[in-house]
Amino acid sequence: MNITLWIVQILLALLFLMVGSQKVMPSKKGNEEIDRTGNASNLFAFIGIVEILGAVGLILPWLLNIVPVLTPLAAVGFSIIMVLAAIHHAKRKEMKSVVTNIIILALAIFVVIGRLI
């Protein structure tokens, strides 16, 4: 079970590290997309920074055994982000993204339950 939890934690951390860094440092196409959808770029960058910090929080506290309760809390934070993202994509009728958000939500909840028990 511990190995499975570590695999899921690493996969989630890599995913959110990648997505967060793309939000913090978007390409030209990403900037055009932000402007076209009307989203505030500061909010977008803030979400990216939170995702990067959460990715670090999924791994380091449990690995270093320094305040290990932060690992399941980071997973709870990602669960909240995924619920909000699924609602956002559902309003925009982007059902493939909603399914992806639900899968990531399930993985984050798995980490929460596995690390708290």
Rank of each mutant, 00 (worst) to 15 (best):
R36Y: 14
R36H: 13
R36S: 12
R36W: 12
T37M: 09
G38T: 02
N39F: 14
A40Y: 13
A40R: 11
A40V: 11
S41K: 11
S41T: 13
S41G: 00
S41M: 06
N42F: 10
N42M: 14
N42I: 15
N42P: 00
L43D: 06
L43R: 03
L43Q: 08
F44T: 15
F44M: 11
F44D: 08
A45L: 14
A45C: 10
A45M: 15
A45D: 04
F46L: 13
F46P: 01
F46E: 05
F46A: 12
I47T: 14
I47V: 15
I47H: 03
G48P: 07
G48F: 08
I49P: 05
V50A: 15
V50K: 01
V50H: 04
E51W: 03
E51V: 01
I52A: 03
I52F: 01
L53D: 06
L53S: 10
L53C: 15
L53F: 15
L53Q: 05
G54W: 01
G54Y: 02
G54R: 02
G54E: 05
G54F: 04
A55Q: 05
A55Y: 07
A55K: 06
A55D: 02
A55C: 08
A55W: 04
V56D: 00
V56W: 08
V56F: 13
V56H: 04
V56Y: 08
G57K: 01
G57M: 03
G57S: 07
G57L: 03
L58C: 10
L58S: 09
L58F: 08
I59W: 03
L60W: 13
L60G: 07
L60M: 12
L60F: 15
P61N: 09
P61E: 09
P61T: 11
W62G: 07
W62N: 11
W62L: 12
L63F: 10
L63P: 02
L63K: 09
L64Q: 08
L64C: 06
L64P: 04
N65S: 11
I66N: 08
I66R: 09
I66S: 03
I66A: 03
I66E: 11
V67R: 01
V67E: 12
V67D: 11
V67W: 14
P68C: 03
P68Q: 01
V69Y: 13
V69P: 00
L70K: 05
L70P: 05
L70M: 13
L70Q: 09
T71G: 06
T71R: 05
T71Y: 04
P72N: 04
P72Y: 04
P72L: 05
P72W: 02
L73W: 09
L73Q: 06
L73I: 11
L73M: 14
A75K: 01
V76F: 09
V76R: 00
V76Q: 00
V76W: 07
V76D: 00
G77D: 05
G77W: 02
F78K: 00
S79A: 14
I80L: 12
I81L: 11
I81E: 07
I81H: 06
M82E: 01
V83P: 14
V83W: 03
V83T: 13
L84K: 02
A85Q: 08
A85F: 07
A86I: 06
A86F: 02
A86K: 05
A86D: 07
A86S: 14
I87T: 02
I87R: 04
H88T: 15
H88Y: 11
H88R: 09
H88C: 07
H89V: 12
H89E: 13
H89M: 07
